[in-house]
Simulated assay, not measured.
Amino acid sequence: MDNLLAAFAQAFGLLISLDADLLEIVGLSLRVSLTAVLLAAAIGLPLGAAVALFRFPGRQGLVVLLNALMGLPPVVVGLVVYLLLSRSGPLGVLGLLFTPAAMIAAQVVLVLPIVAALARQAVEDLWQEYEEQLRSLGSSTARAIPTLLWDGRFTLLTAILAGFGRASAEVGAVMIVGGNIDHVTRVMTTAIALETARGDLALALGLGIVLLTLTVLINGGAELVRRWARDWAP
Rank of each mutant, 00 (worst) to 15 (best):
I43M: 06
G44Y: 09
G44R: 12
L45G: 02
G48Y: 04
A52M: 05
L53I: 09
L53S: 00
L53E: 00
F54C: 01
F56P: 02
G58Y: 13
R59D: 00
R59P: 04
R59N: 04
G61P: 08
G61Y: 08
L62K: 02
V63K: 07
V64Q: 08
L65F: 15
L66N: 13
L66W: 13
N67M: 13
A68F: 14
M70R: 14
M70E: 05
G71C: 15
G71A: 15
G71M: 15
L72A: 13
P73A: 14
P73R: 15
V75I: 03
V76Q: 09
G78V: 08
L79E: 09
V80H: 10
V81D: 11
L85M: 12
L85E: 06
R87H: 09
R87Q: 08
L91F: 11
G92P: 07
V93E: 12
V93T: 11
G95K: 14
L96P: 00
F98V: 11
A102S: 08
I104E: 04
A105M: 15
Q107H: 06
V108D: 11
V108S: 09
V109F: 00
L110M: 11
L110F: 08
L112N: 09
L112W: 04
A116D: 01
A116E: 01
A117S: 07
A117T: 01
L118V: 03
A119Q: 02
A119N: 06
Q121L: 09
A122H: 04
V123T: 06
V123A: 03
D125R: 09
D125K: 06
Q128T: 11
Q133T: 15
R135H: 10
R135M: 12
S140C: 14
R143K: 14
I145E: 02
W150Y: 13
D151C: 05
F154V: 06
F154E: 05
F154C: 01
L156C: 00
T158K: 07
I160Y: 14
L161H: 04
G163E: 10
G163H: 11
F164S: 02
F164H: 10
G165Y: 07
R166T: 03
R166H: 01
R166D: 03
S168Y: 06
S168N: 09
A169N: 09
V171P: 03
A173I: 03
V177S: 08
N180R: 06
D182V: 12
T185Q: 10
R186E: 11
V187L: 00
